[in-house]
Design a binder for these strands. Structure first.
Lengths: 202, 202, 202, 202
DNA sequence: AATGAATGAGGATTCATTCAT
DNA sequence: GATGAATGAATCCTCATTCAT
């Protein structure tokens, strides 16, 4: 009765779809954060993020009360795609190809939002943070994948899922040219990844 | 006598013998920096360094105009030992053991101060900085060592010296617990290194 | 009928009867403000007030354009009761008892919300504000009461009505524990009031 | 030996008398704080204080790391004078005159640094703060004085030292015109104090 | 009328670096 | 040469108030 009363002001239905301008600002903020964090690292100035988004600081804080909420939002979509990919890879039937493809995905995730590897590393195992929760999902997918590859005998028995992930994030970090005095012409992700892949193969 | 001691500042020709108290302060500053950086990482407060050294900030700046000069001075000694080690390893006759030992040295150097890997990465290829110069020396030693191991056939032909170094610094970064919410009990350097080593072996 | 209810807004002639939902919101806001101010003092967050009322901030501002309007509305009822009390006291026939009772009322009013004494003090003599107007009414009642007590010879001749009120508000302020580092177990209003009462008696 | 060595830079003796410019800035800061706090209350902007002193914020924080250190410094001198006065008053032989004079001192202290009464009230009983410590001293003096007056029979037996102080601070607060919309022409401290004094007399 | 998103000034605090003593 | 006082940019965050929807 209450929700169908004539007093209900504007929204006809019960769900609140987020106002158009709010949604637009959210998008802008995410884009600005992506850029800013790429340049300054995930410690980058939030004030700067707001400025780039053409938005007041207050707006940023309304949308993302904590820095991690911003990072989490940044990663969420990507991670979900990666996890979905992992599942589809398992259906491909080639465990080694799957491992390769997955790690390339991870690197691509970490490279897209440069500097985010640091953040992931920091909260990777803290399920109490939103970011940690996303990471847990991602690690779960990778773990299953690796287990399978191990069972199929294409990966060394002693390779731990977390350790491999860590090295891969280390590669992402090493390839990150941010703050380098003389930018390397070549990010050289591939050669580094190849070393690791060969280290995994049994 | 004083100016020929092994602690003489880096410039090859010292015009003036450096006053006794200046030398003493330099030593104190290095020691204080070592402690401070060990606790707070290489981003640690310089004011804190000066305080621990029992010296004014101004004095610190006179001796080490930039933070990197301080880091460089701290790494110099370590790096020289590592380079010397590389040479002695070549005399051991076992190229694979040499590669292993050397990379472990590198990791140990990088683990000295939290965050130092980032500094190294940033200036690695910039010979105009003091830190870059030290790195160049180090890379030279590693390059020769790897070449030898490759010639002996114990290391894959396609492994590039710089790429391997990068991955190893990536490992150091990944093992760095700074800013981690829930510090991992175990930095897990060994398992990560093992993956890389196995990736190098031919 | 609706506009003659005791809850009608302060303006004497209400052109339009005020929509039912508007009236409901007004009530809710007052209730929420009462709670919030009781907890956080009169400096409490207005956003919080709106939230508790289950209403947007905008609505709050529509009903109460300034914080003082809210405070005024909250005090209005209390003050009216106090004024009425003053009149009934005069009928009691005991002027000293009346003075005592009245000042206790004032203290009780001022203790309603932390910090409200400051608001009262600030606008006490400014009849252009709604709060000031209420205060003027209140002071009028007190003045008459005191005059009577003076005429009856139970109160010193040199006691000025405003001065006494000021001291009493000062007591309310002194008893206010807001921001105290170590909250006093006992606000000690009574002993302070007793000093003042004894200072009044002739 | 060490302190007489030729290395000792400027200060001939062992004590460090504070550099001339530092002392000057300290004075300026205190003056600026006095003014700023008078206008904005003790919650006044520290940035403003620094600006008025013609000094960077950093300088303010170097001299007074916490707001209370500033307030404490502001009160220290005054309080000491008041305490000394209390002692001299006891030698005067007239306990009632002493009580009167002392409370006038207290009011004068509280009025000089307007708004400071609030701060005193907040930390009055917290000996862990520097301000609380100063207050304790002050209260000690007053307590002794009052005890004496009580023993001499000129003050009511039931008057508690702390309660009286509280009312007096309440008077200071009530007389404070800061933030009043229509400043009262007359601070009216005297009439209020007289009420309290008469309330004390036995 | 109601809503709540957006604003942005404002306040506290830190610290690398410079410079007067 | 040594000292440490001074600087002030930079960062985080909060909240009263306005205004587009």
């Amino acid at each position: 009765m209450t929700q169908t009363s004539p007093d209900a002001p504007t929204s006809p239905a019960a769900e609140r779809p987020m106002r158009a301008d709010a949604r637009r600002n959210r998008e802008r903020l995410l884009r600005a954060a992506r850029d800013t964090f790429a340049e300054q690292g995930v410690d980058g100035s939030l004030e700067e993020v707001a400025r780039r988004a053409g938005v007041g600081v207050g707006t940023l804080y309304r949308h993302f009360p904590a820095r991690d909420d911003l990072i989490e939002a940044l990663l969420h979509e990507r991670f979900e795609r990666t996890i979905a990919h992992a599942e589809s890879l398992r259906e491909g039937g080639d465990p080694w190809a799957a491992v390769e493809a997955y790690l390339r995905d991870v690197l691509s995730d970490a490279a897209t939002f440069r500097g985010v590897a640091a953040s992931i590393k920091a909260t990777m195992h803290d399920a109490s943070t939103p970011l940690g929760t996303v990471c847990a999902l991602s690690r779960q997918g990778w773990s299953t994948l690796l287990e399978w590859a191990r069972a199929e005998g294409v990966v060394r028995a002693d390779a731990d899922a977390d350790d491999v992930l860590r090295v891969v994030y280390g590669i992402a970090w090493a390839a990150d040219q941010r703050r380098a005095r003389r930018p390397d012409s070549d990010p050289r992700i591939e050669p580094m990844l190849r070393i690791v892949l060969q280290g995994l193969r049994s």
